[in-house]
Design a protein around this nucleic acid. Structure first.
Lengths: 250, 250
DNA sequence: ATGTCCTATTCGTCATATAAATGGACATTA
DNA sequence: TAATGTCCATTTATATGACGAATAGGACAT
């Protein structure tokens, strides 16, 4: 049973009680706290966290909107199966990555990137306007400048990939900017361990040049290589689980 | 100014007042009803729809969780820019697709499918278990059986693609099952007009066979062809907007 | 021109009461 | 027995009223 105080809830995510409680409950759910017991009733939640029923109801409503729970009279609030959680909600993704970080999740996330980002790069090569091209180049320059490594280069890396996604002119691809940013930031302690890849500035430059020169095929291939390298590093760290996927990429 | 009655709200999405109001407000927002005026205050919303403040607050909280609005004291509730809407939330997607349906959105959505589904098919060829293979075949058989066309073949089509996504064993790809299902269902009146493609059973069979025979490359290529054909049909219906994308696919 | 303070407005939170829905226990009936 | 209807307890859903907290924007002083 999770318990907090209102003061802790306010500190939790920095906003108000409702958002603090949302955060606390979200984390508890994704870490499986309620897997083999029923989710508390409104009254219990209110008591456990020292807040009113309104606050618990609004927090639970937000969890409902993100697909984590569903509520029905008499039956109570029940945690939904993972398959109905909205993984592309940045809150959900952050909760998942912060608490239950696993190589599996990192691999699966990069498999997604491996599908999305090359296509986005190809579209950007066709459709990006001058501002977006400039943003891509700016991200690359920031990466070069931040050769000190650490947080700066991570933020520059994120800016680069976000700029490519935006440049695709496709709102569905652009949607991934928050997801990619959240996931990269949340997994920094991990990718740092797989050091050596994030500094692959030549690979990033290849992507940028292909996009600027309006060469979609080259842009797609270059971006594919970038993400595949990350996947290879992950597989190298845990080879037994990679299956034939790694072989297929080479 | 949107106005409804509680009875209408209940009918709206079939659940309760809160979800009905959520639906009404979501539709209103994505159709731009509040673009050049401020979003109503809690009190105004409650009055306009004949519900209590609790209901309006919980509906607005859900909109917040989906990224459509943000609320601050004194400033009121404001509609967020489209870029921060969660397009992979099935509610948001349905609201968007149900309003004036645009070829642009359909094209962009299928560009996303073109990135996702081939990779999912390749992963499914590597990782799907017996149950998942059976589900893929079952979807194919349902398509063959429903040669009458119409709604049945659409549902079978959806079942097939969902089965492939699930078979990828990747929760991020699996996440798209709801998105794909929602989008295909919402766009049926449109794809029906582009008749002739949804009955491409041989193409679907090629995907299924490649997956069952554990041939990821073939599965990827077959799925790519499937989605590319849809994209070609869209471009053919509105050639001036397709840019060089169509040429690039061939 | 700038900084300080005040105030009205709006969301945030709390408390309480009543309605609606539903699963189960129990009684009824064919 | 088995099917069906009735009632009850529990939990969410809704309504209402009150007060607190934060802040945008104006009034005012410097």
């Amino acid at each position: 049973m999770i318990e907090t105080t209102p003061a802790e809830l306010r500190l939790n995510l920095g906003r108000n009680l409702t958002h603090g409680l949302l955060d606390a409950l979200g984390r508890a759910i994704v870490t499986g706290q309620y897997d083999n017991g029923a989710f508390p009733t409104e009254a219990e939640l209110a008591k456990q966290h020292g807040v009113s029923r309104s606050v618990t109801r609004e927090a639970v409503k937000m969890l409902t909107a993100k697909g984590l729970v569903s509520a029905r009279p008499r039956q109570g609030t029940i945690v939904q199966p993972r398959s109905s959680w909205n993984l592309f909600d940045t809150d959900v993704l952050r909760w998942l990555l912060n608490r239950k970080f696993s190589l599996d999740l990192l691999r699966q996330f990069n498999q997604l990137r491996s599908a999305i980002e090359p296509e986005a790069a190809a579209l950007a090569a066709l459709l990006a306007d001058d501002n977006e091209l400039a943003a891509i180049n700016a991200g690359l320059e920031r990466m070069k400048a931040a050769e000190t490594g650490g947080e700066q280069i991570l933020e520059a890396d994120i800016a680069f990939h976000v700029a490519v996604l935006k440049g695709s002119k496709n709102p569905f691809f652009a949607q991934f900017q928050d997801v990619v940013a959240t996931a990269l930031r949340s997994s920094i302690q991990f990718t740092n361990r797989l050091k050596g890849h994030s500094a692959s500035i030549p690979d990033h430059a290849a992507v940028a040049h292909a996009i600027v020169k309006r060469q979609p095929e080259k842009a797609r291939a270059a971006m594919k290589k970038l993400v595949s390298d990350v996947l290879d590093l992950i597989d190298a760290a845990e080879p037994e689980k990679s299956g034939k996927a790694a072989a297929k990429r080479r």
